[in-house]
């Protein structure tokens, strides 16, 4: 970990203008500190958002909920209203990380965490995503890697469970920029595959700060996760299913692509109202349409079909 300065700015609205590519925001720190320790990030300064008046409230709003950016995963997990009204989010949060990490990690930070790819995180490897060349995972140990969209420069999967749930729920984030402008962005549009010019998994600029996450209600929603141990592992595959207020069913998988992956084929296969057993069978079978697994992760396909089937059955 290289040395850096530590700053507190009381007014959240004043934070974005201070941010640069080397002056970075610090919230829960549960991902950022691991990157600093691995020297993946070497900021000159950190601005502690917790020392500001950035949102910490969980508010009922028209048609859903508004979560301040600093709301911790623990508070979501233990919030009766969210558990009842957006179970997919509460379930995703509950299956993410551990109690200690959830006590610290914020919902906005969770969306912006970097991949856990074991090459990306390895100090001894300079992969494309870390600013170097090539993707050792493509020909190496890739049992945890992507099965969709695998012809891009990086096959790391997005590490967040809540992200998949939020995309399925149609959630949005409120973003404040360095010029004082505010914009609303769907989580689905916030998270995008990295490109040569922008080797991160989101579209935010250096001086953007997420101030809130808005989540539409979907009492019929769920998030299922498969890990190699009972708890405390990143998803091999996760599936979020949500029935929106207007009856639309959205299916989003984690652990299968650079970003939360919309299971468009499965959604299309549902074709029509009513989650009948036949429709669920069809959708589950179509969940892996377009998949292009790597040498070691073909097992994710049956896993994805099973979780899709079970998630749909749960919300039917």
């Amino acid at each position: 970990m290289t040395p850096f300065d530590y700053q507190r700015i009381p007014e959240a609205a004043a934070v974005p203008a201070q941010l640069t590519p080397t002056v970075r925001p610090l919230a829960g720190g549960t991902d950022l500190l691991t990157r600093l320790k691995a020297c993946l990030d070497r900021p000159d300064a950190l601005v502690d958002l917790k020392a500001s008046d950035l949102g910490r409230a969980i508010d009922r709003v028209d048609g859903g909920w508004r979560l301040g950016a600093l709301v911790t995963l623990s508070r979501i997990q233990h919030h009766p209203g969210l558990r009842a009204d957006v179970p997919a989010l509460a379930e995703a949060v509950s299956q993410a990380a551990t109690p200690q990490l959830r006590n610290r990690a914020t919902i906005a930070g969770n969306l912006l965490q970097r991949p856990r790819c074991w090459y990306f995180r390895n100090e001894r490897v300079q992969c494309w995503l870390a600013g170097g060349e090539g993707c050792p995972a493509r020909s190496g140990r890739n049992e945890h890697h992507a099965v969709f969209d695998t012809d891009g420069p990086c096959v790391a999967t997005h590490p967040s469970d809540p992200a998949a749930a939020l995309v399925a729920l149609g959630a949005t984030v409120t973003v404040l920029d360095g010029g004082g402008g505010e914009r609303e962005l769907a989580v689905a549009d916030l998270l995008v595959p990295p490109t040569d010019e922008r080797r991160v998994e989101h579209v935010l600029a250096a001086d953007d700060v997420i101030t809130a996450v808005t989540v539409p209600s979907a009492p019929r929603s769920t998030y299922l996760k498969a890990m190699d141990r009972a708890v405390w592992a990143f998803a091999l595959v996760g599936v979020a299913a949500a029935v929106s207020a207007d009856g639309e069913v959205r299916l989003v998988a984690s652990g299968v692509a650079n970003t939360p992956w919309r299971l468009a084929g499965a959604e299309a296969a549902l074709a029509g109202p009513g989650l009948t057993p036949e429709a669920i069978d069809r959708a589950a079978a179509a969940a892996t349409d377009g998949a292009a697994p790597l040498a070691e992760n073909g097992y994710k396909l049956p896993l994805l079909r099973t979780l899709t089937h079970r998630a749909l059955t749960a919300v039917a």
């Binding site: 530590y6 610090l26 720190g29 549960t30 500190l33 691991t34 950190l46 502690d48 917790k50 623990s74 551990t98 109690p99 200690q100 990490l101 006590n103 610290r104």
Partner: peptide, 21 residues
């Protein structure tokens, strides 16, 4: 989890917290 401490009554990993925070 070996470094767990309570911070304002909540369990956290003290290896992922800066002292200045």
């Amino acid at each position: 989890g070996a470094c767990t401490v309570l911070l304002d009554d909540e369990a956290v990993y003290s290896c992922l917290v800066l002292a200045v925070e």
